[in-house]
């Protein structure tokens, strides 16, 4: 029985999540409370959604550093749509996703059409979106920034209250549906296949007739749309749109993808990896708080996790390559000896 390398990586991620669950369940009294589980899944959902979107540029061999800026801009736009125009939450969730997709399209055009590197292009556009968000912050007649709380029931139904007492939030279900939907897109469509092909070898994919420009643009659109959707859901939870919205989301999302098993070089992983990574990152923070550790440890532990995950992936890639080589040699030898 042979297990695929990527499946082993998936099992490692599942194992890590389970191990954390067991450790914290044994060592902390409130970890397994219904409320804690529900909050934990809700907190995982924002990061998880952004990470699911981020998975597309990453699997395609790139990166999207603009998602934090998109969360900021779209989050503030969403609150304006509710507060100033009285739109319902159902309309805004749709508009927010579209707005995120539009920002993603801009990224895609800059990267795939203009030809700037993903790192620089999305870093710059991230600042652009962040600036746009800050410029749109609510202000009073004297030009001073003010906070406006969302009061629309349909808006808040997505994030403020659980669906049933001590139960899960709608956000969690949205996240799971999106992660599974995007998993199907990656695994069962030509677009998904081409994304893996570009991530494994961009030039070879291009020479095989894959429209790499189009595939990359669609990848960024999905990333932007997920960030836009997450932005709406974050503001539905916070009931407002702080100017600092989206701070650091890009790095947390990348970390979740890497920890979950999406390789930085591209060509490997899927949205279930991103989902597991986000869950792992949130559980570990939740556990740290329960241990009553100084919160400065959070950054140290997060840094260590990313470092270990990257080191593990690097070693794992070597191991997988050796295994492929060994299999290749075996298959070369077998027909010869048979004859």
């Amino acid at each position: 029985m042979r297990i695929k390398s990527q499946s082993i990586r998936r099992l490692v991620a599942v194992g890590l999540v389970l191990a954390l669950v067991v450790i914290f369940a044994i060592t902390t009294p409130t970890f397994f409370g219904a409320r804690n589980i529900s909050i934990l899944l809700k907190d995982s959902a924002y990061l998880g959604l952004v990470a699911c979107g981020m998975a597309f540029p990453m699997i395609g061999g790139g990166i999207d550093l603009s998602v934090g800026g998109i969360v900021c801009a779209v989050g503030i736009i969403s609150v304006h749509l509710s507060y100033d125009f009285g739109l319902s939450g159902y309309a805004i969730i749709f508009i927010a996703t579209l707005a995120g997709a539009a920002f993603g399209l801009l990224n895609g055009i800059i990267v795939a059409k203009v030809g700037l590197t993903e790192f620089v292009a999305t870093l710059a556009s991230g600042f652009l979106f962040l600036g746009l968000g800050r410029a749109l912050v609510f202000k009073d007649a004297g030009g001073r920034a003010v906070t406006r709380a969302v009061s629309s029931e349909s808006y808040l139904s997505f994030g403020k209250n659980p669906l049933w007492e001590n139960g899960w939030y709608l956000i969690t279900f949205v996240w799971i549906v999106v992660a599974v939907g995007l998993y199907i897109v990656l695994k069962k469509t030509k677009f998904g296949l081409y994304t893996y092909a570009i991530g494994s070898n961009d030039k070879a994919a291009k020479m095989s007739g894959v429209d790499t420009t189009k595939i990359k643009i669609i990848g960024f659109i999905i990333s932007g749309a997920c960030a836009g959707l997450a932005a709406f859901l974050v503001t539905a939870n916070l009931t407002s749109s702080p100017a600092a919205l989206g701070d650091g989301y890009e790095f947390k999302a990348i970390a979740a993808c890497v920890v979950g098993g999406i390789m930085l070089g591209g060509g490997k992983g899927d949205t279930i990896n991103a989902l597991l990574g986000a869950l792992f990152m949130t559980i570990i923070l939740n556990g740290i708080y329960k241990f009553g550790l100084d919160s400065t440890f959070v950054y140290i532990i997060q840094g260590l996790i990313i470092l270990l995950a990257t080191a593990f992936d690097s070693q794992f890639a070597k191991f997988a390559a050796k295994r492929r080589l060994k299999e290749q040699r075996l298959s070369d030898i077998t027909p010869a000896s048979a004859s």
């Binding site: 499946s7 389970l18 369940a25 397994f32 219904a34 589980i37």
Partner: peptide, 25 residues
Amino acid sequence: TSRILAVLLAVLMVGVFGLGMAACE
């Protein structure tokens, strides 16, 4: 086999969460 194993682990994880919730209730 690996897919079945992954699904089993995921089911186990959801089951453990569910048990925790029931215990809390």
